[in-house]
């Protein structure tokens, strides 16, 4: 611990004995004891099969599934963000159709389990074998294709994750936009800035400060939610792949550890990214 200075410029600082917090010390000792037990147990308990963990950690199948997990996370998140921006603009619309559609969308996707939604998207091609664009009530048809031509498990997984995410992000974005004082938009208006420029240059950069931390949480949540896409069924991401290997080896624990290690690693990387984003958009905040 750093020693406090005892004097400066000839002024003697107060010297006193700090209060001893016995409870805190006991708690710390107990925690250290438990941590040592845990680590030692993990090291010596052969049921962990650390050798198997080491053997499969960089296995080519695991690597491939890791790439798929990342692809699902990034694309679903991107889809969610784009939709959420549109939704939060629609909600502010003075046209009641626009705002109602946005509200119903959010109500539906927040109100049903993502697992259910993924099952539904998995059955989409069964539900709609042909995809047709035209006028309702048997009117003209502009476009008609077999759903199978553009629809597969990956698309279903991304739609399921992205649409569900958009509902949550829309709420976060709205909170972000509402956190900006009214005077900012008024100042932009008074300067004669076009609305779009004002949103882009004034409101959004400031809202980002409020939006980024919970969106970072959502990104981490998305990474882990990708483990549910077996509902589609999409079978190339890491939870499914490690599980399949484990079932063949009759060794569930080490493969779970492999998956957990990779999830933790990616989460850590995402957190570092979030730190830098927060720093970038924290400009001009009073210290």
């Amino acid at each position: 611990m750093l020693r406090k200075p005892t004097q400066r410029d000839g002024v003697d600082f107060i010297r006193s004995r700090p209060v001893r917090h016995l409870g805190r010390i006991i708690a710390a000792v107990v925690l250290i004891y438990l941590a040592v037990c845990l680590i030692d147990g993990m090291r010596t308990n052969s049921n962990y099969h650390w050798d198997v963990v080491g053997q499969y950690l960089f296995d080519v199948r695991i690597m491939r599934s890791l790439v798929w997990t990342l692809v699902l996370t990034v694309i679903s998140m991107a889809l969610g963000i784009v939709l959420a921006v549109i939704l939060s603009l629609m909600r502010e619309s003075r046209n009641p159709v626009n705002s109602s559609v946005a509200n119903i969308w959010i109500w539906f996707f927040r109100g049903t389990p993502v697992y259910t939604q993924l099952l539904f998207w998995g059955l989409f091609a069964v539900l709609y074998p042909k995809f047709t664009l035209g006028l309702p009530f048997g009117g003209a048809t502009f476009l008609s294709v077999d759903t199978q031509q553009f629809y597969n498990a990956a698309v279903a997984a991304i739609l399921g994750l992205g649409l569900n995410e958009s509902a949550y992000l829309a709420e976060i974005f709205r909170a972000g936009f509402q956190s900006i004082p009214k005077g900012q938009m008024e100042a932009a208006d008074a300067l004669g800035l076009p609305r779009r420029q004002a949103m882009w240059r004034i409101i959004l950069p400031q809202a980002m400060r409020v939006i980024i931390p919970p969106t970072g949480n959502e990104a981490i949540g998305m990474l882990k939610t990708t483990s549910l896409v077996l509902a589609v069924p999409f079978t190339l991401e890491i939870t499914y792949v490690t599980n399949a290997i484990a079932n063949r080896l009759y060794l569930p624990i080490p493969l779970l550890l492999v998956a957990a290690i990779w999830y933790l690693l990616i989460t850590s990387i995402l957190m570092v990214g979030q730190y830098f984003l927060e720093k970038k958009f924290g400009k001009g905040v009073a210290v």
Binding site: P181, G183, Q184, E186, A187, A190, L191, G192, I202, P205, Q206, F281, K283, G284, V285
Partner: peptide, 15 residues
């Protein structure tokens, strides 16, 4: 754009 306005609370862009 032909009119400049100054507010009570300044409303500078903090970022």
């Amino acid at each position: 754009r032909h009119i400049g306005m100054v507010f009570q609370r300044f409303n500078l862009f903090p970022h």
